[in-house]
Simulated assay, not measured.
Amino acid sequence: MDNATDEPARARYRRSAGSPRGEARRRELLAKITDDVAENGLVDFSLRRAARAAGTTHKVLLYHFEGAEDLLRQVVFALRERRIGNALTAVAAESPTLAGRVRAAWCSLRDEETRLRRVLDQAMGLAMYDPGRYAALGRGASQQYLPTLVSFCPPHWPERRKLEVAEMILATLRGFLVDLLTSPDGEGAEAGVAALLRAVEREEAAP
């Protein structure tokens, strides 16, 4: 990260929040920067690199964002939203069982672009490496993914049960995604998913 994120620099620029025109410009800039990060990863991310990707200056970015960390958080959020949207599209064509929905979501995750998977794993790595600075990247992942997984559960289940099962699915699929990045054939991940689906089917069959 560059030093364009310090408080004095931020204080010189007025945020655009609340202005419809400013919000539209912020979304436009964020989309360009998100595309750049999806293509090139998080290594050496800075306001100046983001400004080049967006065709503007870091001072303009400071008008629309709080700083590099705020921008990075919003970029990662946008990339996760892409992942969730892809998974929901796949799930919509699947049988309306929890196991079927998890299977469809897994296939979407398994087949997504490796670059996207690596970027989101890099974000989690930053959260683990420097939690004081990037903890929001880690917390944000669960906050984004869990509501979708909870929505996969049978509607008559108690909310606590839905959340417990969603937590299990999320933690397990995260591990399998890491395995896909580190194993040459992915057989271990597929075997693990098969076991997860059997466990989900048993959970669905339980009273």
Rank of each mutant, 00 (worst) to 15 (best):
M1T: 00
E7A: 14
R10G: 03
A11K: 10
R14K: 05
A17H: 02
P20W: 01
G22K: 00
E23W: 00
R26V: 00
E28V: 08
L30S: 03
A31P: 11
A31D: 07
K32E: 08
V37L: 02
L42S: 03
S46L: 04
R48K: 05
R49Y: 00
A51N: 03
A51S: 12
A51Y: 01
R52E: 10
T56V: 00
V60A: 14
L62H: 11
Y63S: 06
H64M: 07
H64T: 02
E66A: 09
D70V: 15
L71P: 14
L79R: 05
L79N: 06
R83L: 08
I84V: 15
A87N: 06
A87L: 01
A87K: 09
L88C: 06
L88H: 14
A92P: 14
E94R: 07
E94D: 15
T97Y: 13
R101D: 02
R103T: 01
C107D: 01
S108T: 01
L109Q: 06
R110T: 05
D111A: 09
E113M: 10
R115Q: 09
R118G: 06
L120H: 13
A123Q: 04
L126E: 11
L126N: 04
D130P: 04
D130N: 15
D130G: 04
D130I: 07
R133T: 15
R133K: 12
R133E: 12
Y134D: 09
L149T: 03
L149N: 07
C153S: 15
P154N: 09
P155V: 07
P155Y: 07
H156V: 10
H156Y: 11
R160S: 14
K162C: 15
E164N: 08
E164L: 12
I169Y: 15
A171N: 05
S183Y: 03
S183T: 05
G186I: 06
G186D: 12
G192A: 02
G192S: 06
G192E: 00
V193W: 11
A194C: 04
L196H: 03
L197Y: 14
R198P: 00
R198E: 14
E201Q: 08
E204D: 10
